[in-house]
Simulated assay, not measured.
Amino acid sequence: MNNSLFNLDKIIDLEKWHKLQDSLALVTKMAIITVDYKGTPVTQHSYCQPFCQSVRKDSSLSPYCQTCDARGGLEAVRLNKPYIYMCHFNIIDIAIPIIIDNQYIGAIMAGQIKLHDTETPLEQIVTRPSNSETNNKFKALEEEYLSLPTLSYEEVTTIADMLFHLCNYIVEEAIHKNSTIDMYKKALSIDIDNPSMDSMSSSDRTYRNIQAIQNELSSTLIDTKIKKVISNEIRSANPLLQPSFDYIYHHKNENITLSEMAKLCHISPSYFSRIFIKETGEKFSVFAPRLKIEWAKQLLETTDQSINQISDELGFCDAGYFIKTFKKFETLTPAVYRNMYRNNHTFKNSSELP
């Protein structure tokens, strides 16, 4: 996710985006803020409610708000759709993921409203222990709390879907526009870098430029296809595990043991194993090789690398073990997988010819 292509501040004009965000907040009656894939705000809050402003400025209450934001965003990514939940003050918030080509690049955090239909079952994502100090702070802000906008659950879900589709569409179009401009600039540079272009007619140069754009587009699509799996790093709901996921994705050619990962996370192997299963749903001994096989499938589909080369790149001890592991997960060998994939695509392409 280090590619600037997927950094929100590189994709869109944040000044114009914030004006749109202000308008959306005004129309929907919701406070809205935009964050990047790390959870870092890239805009200011639009129409943050006085109650929430006061709570977020309070040193003892603000951490609960931040935890709500973080957990809400992760749940939205997991569901791949807007996630509606209650904060620690039972206020309704929404996390709306921005996901382009299976890449999570940020989120819209909206809400700070109450529901008309208070019996609608929603998860309170963070619970805060009640104490006299907190109760006194709430009483001091009770008037601001009561003045929070109120909407029906149907209105909230409609707004959430609207923001989800609108924001993802705008960002996707911006990415495509930026990619097209970059390719066009590269194609135009042919005129300068290649002296032989001077003798060509205008139509010939246009044709060559179009060819260059097509070639660049083809290359970009292949890169994107690989990155869908290879670069789509996991953001762990449990921060203790994040160093292990980061290491796995940045050291694809290594054979990593559970003990090494536990040491990296500064926890015991038994505790690492327990929380890893809770996070991923499978043992580390299954997760790590399965992930390598997913990377291998992408390389088989999109490159001409030999089985031995792919085996070496992904850190298998030898090609025989790589083939055995691949067959365990896919029920066929890497060579058969590649042939089936290419035959299917050749058939598909030929069937589309006029």
Rank of each mutant, 00 (worst) to 15 (best):
L8R: 07
K10P: 00
D13E: 05
D13A: 08
E15Y: 12
K16W: 08
Q21D: 02
L24S: 06
A25I: 01
A25R: 07
A25P: 08
A25L: 02
K29S: 07
Y37F: 08
K38G: 13
K38V: 07
Y47D: 01
Q49P: 00
P50A: 04
F51Y: 09
S54R: 11
V55W: 02
D58W: 05
S59L: 06
S60H: 09
S62K: 15
C65M: 06
T67Y: 02
A70L: 13
R71K: 14
E75H: 10
P82F: 01
Y83G: 05
Y83K: 07
Y85A: 01
M86N: 11
N90Q: 12
I91D: 03
I91A: 04
I92A: 05
D93E: 13
I94S: 04
A95N: 01
P97E: 00
I99L: 04
I100C: 03
D101K: 00
I105T: 02
I105N: 03
I105E: 04
L115G: 03
H116L: 10
L122D: 02
Q124S: 14
T134C: 11
E142P: 00
E144L: 12
E144N: 15
E144A: 14
E144T: 09
L146I: 11
T150E: 08
S152W: 07
E154P: 02
D161H: 14
L163F: 11
F164G: 03
L166V: 09
C167I: 13
N168L: 08
V171P: 05
A174G: 08
N178T: 06
S179H: 11
I181P: 06
I181W: 06
M183V: 01
Y184K: 11
K186E: 03
K186R: 15
A187C: 06
A187V: 01
L188P: 04
D191R: 12
I192N: 10
D193W: 07
S196L: 13
S199I: 08
S199F: 12
M200L: 15
R205K: 14
R205N: 06
Y207I: 08
Y207G: 03
N215F: 05
L217G: 00
S218D: 03
K227P: 01
V229N: 09
S231L: 07
E233L: 12
R235V: 15
S236H: 12
S236C: 14
A237T: 08
D246Q: 11
Y247G: 00
I248T: 07
Y249F: 15
Y249P: 03
H250P: 06
E254V: 14
I256R: 07
T257Q: 12
L264F: 06
H266E: 13
I267F: 05
S268G: 09
F272T: 02
I277A: 10
G281K: 11
S285F: 09
F287H: 04
P289I: 00
L291W: 05
I293P: 08
E294Y: 10
W295T: 09
W295V: 06
A296L: 10
Q298N: 11
L299I: 09
L299W: 15
L300D: 02
L300K: 05
E301V: 02
T302Y: 03
S306Y: 03
I307M: 13
Q309P: 01
D312H: 14
D318S: 15
A319G: 12
G320N: 11
Y321D: 13
Y321K: 15
F322E: 02
K327N: 05
K328D: 01
K328F: 00
K328T: 03
T333Q: 08
V336A: 10
K348Y: 10
N349M: 12
